[in-house]
Computed example of a mutant assay.
Amino acid sequence: MNISGNTIFIPGATSGIGLALALALRDRGNTVIVGGRRTDRLEAIAAEHPDLGTVRIDTADAGSIEDAARTVLAEHPSLNVLVTMAGIMRTEDWRTPDGFLATAEEIVTTNVLGPIRLIAAFVEHLRRMPDATIMTVSSGLAFAPLRVTPTYNASKAAIHMLSESLRLQFEGSSVSVIELEPPAVRTDLMPGHAENDAAMPLDEFIAEVMTLLETRPDASEVQVERVKFLRYGEARGDYAQVVAALNSTDPHGK
């Protein structure tokens, strides 16, 4: 992925990693459109950052995705990068009757169906572009599970394998597939997450991501150093120790 000169749509970018990444990409000379459900947040972003485009989108709603795609492509026909940022993280206890199913279904709808529907809405347009990128967003928890977030872990593992598979299908085409794999980052993804001392400061995470995008434009996975502990536990042969450490020290890991 080239670091500048793109037209980029980032649904789920009204706060946290999404908004910080949008601003960093804008500062590198890209046209960036952010999407989100809350119109008040979109209006505030437009007022504070008038050079960012905004569009309302609910990635848990198939119709909303289709409407937003039509709007974005009509207003920005040069769009060549889609970042499927939107996602939710919830705790669940599968030992409690009726204590997890609705939450699990919500997570799958947003974290798995959302990216699938987003890619489906934009893929034909992206395939017509001479240089296009789909950036998916998984997590370190795709590779090592946090006990209290089973469906979130599974949803991010699904995104990892989806990314791997799409990369194979688009091989040799103008579309590249990049997977961003955050560790725990200090955002409001979950209550108390922004104050979690074990999580990576957001500005440090974004700075390292931008450096990786700039210095490794052909990378298929964007991994800051702190996520590699989770990402490569199985390959190193210390997976059990990684899982034990994760679940003893970071109850709100990403």
Rank of each mutant, 00 (worst) to 15 (best):
F229Y: 01
S173T: 15
R56K: 12
T249F: 12
Q223P: 03
E43V: 11
L166D: 07
D203P: 01
T109Y: 00
I88G: 12
M200V: 13
R41E: 09
N196C: 05
D27N: 15
V185M: 05
A142Q: 10
A199M: 02
E181R: 08
V185Q: 08
V83T: 05
F143M: 09
I206F: 05
A184W: 02
H193A: 15
R38P: 08
T151P: 07
G233E: 07
A144T: 05
D67K: 05
E214I: 03
R26H: 15
S138C: 06
G36I: 10
D40H: 14
A121N: 10
V177W: 10
P150R: 03
A120C: 00
V72G: 09
K156D: 08
E234K: 11
S220A: 11
L25C: 01
G114I: 09
A20C: 07
T109V: 08
E221W: 13
I33S: 02
A157Y: 04
P150Y: 04
R117D: 00
R231A: 05
I57Y: 03
D238W: 00
A207Q: 12
R41L: 12
F9D: 03
M129E: 14
M161W: 13
I17L: 12
N2F: 00
T31Q: 13
V224C: 06
S15H: 01
H76D: 12
A194C: 06
V243Q: 08
I10W: 03
E92I: 05
R37Q: 03
E204M: 03
D93Y: 10
Q169W: 00
Y232H: 13
G237Q: 06
G29H: 10
T91V: 08
A120I: 05
V81Y: 02
G233H: 06
N30Q: 08
N111S: 10
R95G: 11
E124G: 06
M129V: 09
S176V: 07
F9K: 02
D250L: 04
S15M: 00
L202Q: 01
T136V: 09
L212H: 14
D131L: 09
L113S: 12
I206A: 09
A207D: 15
P11W: 07
A144C: 02
V175E: 07
D58F: 11
